[in-house]
Simulated scan of single mutants.
Amino acid sequence: MSLVNILMIIAVFLLYNLLLFYIGWNIRVWLRNTFGFKKKWPILLAMLFLGYSFVFGRFTGEVEIINIIGSYWMGVIQYSLLLFPIANLVVFVVKKFTSLSKHSIVTWAGYTLLICFVGIFAYGTYNAFTPVVRSYDIKVDKQVKGTDDLRVVMASDMHFGIMSGKGHAKRMVKEIKQLDPDMVLYVGDIIDDDPTPFIDKKIDNDLAQIKAPLGTFAVLGNHEYYGGKIPEFVEKLEDIDIHVLRDEVAELDNGITLIGRKDKTDTERKPVKELVDNVNQNNALFMLDHQPYELRKAENNGIDLVVSGHTHRGQLAPNHLITKFIYENDWGYLQKEDMHSIVSSGFGFWGPPLRLGSQAEIVEINIKFSN
């Protein structure tokens, strides 16, 4: 590890602990002012446990309660960064320009913050576990044997594991079966790093209930790579007829060709041009690429439809402003000449089981072909 990387790690560690101190100090001031609670050690220990609960959860593995606390704490951190400075500023301004007592101002500022956090977490949890179906209608100027239209259902970023568990998987299965798709596409981050919870909870048995006449296909996302158990996970998917494409092409009998890319995480993944070199360009070309990069390259190589995920649309507002800046298409639909790009905000979530500014979603794509 280089000296620069070591210094960056130290800097992040120090900044994070300063943030924990800032949050703990605010909580202590409010508790002391409102309830007369003056002890420091309970708050210090609580902040250390909460602050590193996500790390503890990664090491304890099977202790789900620690993983749950750690995941929610990540949401607390984000909105503490946004709300605590505002609360501090309001207290300062009101104290300076009104005759209200400091005790009264701090008390009500604390209660207001508490209500805000409860509202954010309640609404965010609802959005995370209450999926919607988003439909897009597109036209592809190519012919497909036996039909003029096709219903494709796409889901991404399920992050099945401890937090996005069997119950959430059952919701997805129910929604997809009701849509009665001709084809199902999963575009990466199906699991949250380690496939062990996915296997132990038998989530593969739930996914096996989804059947589509033209098949179910998948690509891997960055989190499958982080887990380091790709062969084991891919075998589970193949066992239930989910065909995983890793820089591979699947040509269907009806004139549709699926091109599945390895994730951008894989430094050895093939360029788009190499993948399409030997495909029939008269076929309808659908590309599965977890991260919505290289849309221009897909367009230049004759791809008709690119489906992606990864962005979560920021998952927690106002992070969507960041993803909108980074990606040409961070969520929803974009057409570039004859190529269509559709990016899902994802069915699951990473970290806190919260969504603000986005909602858990399944994507339905209704495709009209030339006569």
Rank of each mutant, 00 (worst) to 15 (best):
P353Q: 03
K202V: 07
L113M: 15
P42Q: 06
A360H: 00
N26Y: 13
I210N: 00
E238S: 15
Q143G: 07
V106P: 01
L285K: 14
I23S: 01
V140C: 09
K201W: 05
T265N: 12
F59A: 12
G70K: 00
W108N: 13
K170G: 00
V173D: 00
S308W: 06
Y327G: 00
D204L: 08
T265G: 02
K201S: 13
E248K: 14
D149W: 02
C116M: 10
Q78I: 08
Y79C: 00
M74S: 03
N33S: 12
D247E: 08
V306A: 08
R171T: 12
F233E: 00
T112Y: 02
N371H: 09
I115S: 02
L214N: 04
H340E: 11
G161H: 13
V343D: 09
K273R: 14
R355D: 01
P353W: 02
N300V: 01
G165Q: 12
P213D: 08
V153C: 11
Q315P: 01
S156R: 06
N205M: 08
L252T: 02
V276Q: 05
I256A: 06
I162P: 00
D338K: 13
E62M: 09
T125N: 14
V152Q: 03
F121W: 13
I176H: 04
L207E: 05
Q359C: 03
T112G: 13
L285W: 12
K139G: 10
K297H: 09
G221A: 07
P271C: 03
I77W: 01
I259W: 01
E232G: 05
P181I: 03
L45G: 07
Q335F: 07
L14R: 02
T147I: 04
A11R: 12
R58A: 12
T265P: 01
E232A: 13
T34G: 01
D338W: 05
V343Y: 10
I190A: 01
H168C: 02
L14W: 05
Y111F: 15
D182C: 01
F198Q: 04
V93M: 11
V249I: 14
V4A: 05
